[in-house]
């Protein structure tokens, strides 16, 4: 089965790193065929940023997302840009503190979207004391809510991807995301 995941936000939120970690967890540690791609503007921070991960038991030919089964929106701008691409009945994960939910309520209802709220930016600030790990908190939430990547594989992939000396904070952030109820 082919699963298409898109994570979007603005530059500087670690959106692309989140995609790389999901891809690495799936391909190297869960043993699923995976392709990760990204698009970004020439700016380092502030522009729109998007990453896509395609997971499949069979060989993956077309490497991009056609219609996401899972959309993760880290900014309101990203949510509005991509929500209409979603598959009916798809899973939408938002950071409610970054988003004005009323604008999407109709779409969510009409297309049977499973909406999950993960307060990743607040959690990163309050529980970890580091706003920049919001992306890692979100990876925890993705793993828990969607089950497309296992808890242990994701942990391995995070340890394999973050700079030396930051492992403890990042794993804390991941576990905080994994512990969310996601409703």
């Amino acid at each position: 089965m082919r699963t298409e995941l898109r994570i979007a936000g603005f530059g500087g939120q670690g959106v692309i790193l989140a995609g790389i970690i999901v891809g690495k967890a799936a391909s190297l540690f869960d043993g699923i065929n995976t392709v990760q791609t990204q698009s970004y503007g020439p700016e380092t921070r502030g522009g729109a940023s998007k990453t896509e991960v395609v997971l499949c038991d069979d060989e993956i030919h077309y490497p991009k997302v056609i219609s996401p089964d899972i959309l993760v929106a880290m900014s309101h701008e990203a949510l509005i840009a991509y929500i209409s691409d979603m598959k009916d009945g798809g899973t939408l994960i938002i950071d409610p503190d970054m988003i004005n939910e009323s604008e999407i309520a109709d779409f969510v209802k009409k297309h049977n979207i499973k909406l999950h709220r993960a307060k990743v930016t607040k959690t990163a600030e309050n529980e970890i004391g580091l706003r920049i790990v919001a992306n890692i908190v979100m990876i925890g939430a993705i793993s828990k809510i969607t089950q497309v990547i296992s808890h242990d594989a994701t942990k391995e992939a995070i340890l394999d991807s973050v700079p030396p000396g930051t492992e403890k904070k990042n794993i804390q952030a991941f576990e905080a995301g994994y512990a969310m109820d996601g409703n």
Binding site: S27, L28, T34, Q36, T37, P63
Partner: peptide
């Protein structure tokens, strides 16, 4: 660029 920046195993 697709192949240059795409990640696979």
């Amino acid at each position: 660029e697709v192949i240059g920046h795409m990640r696979e195993k």
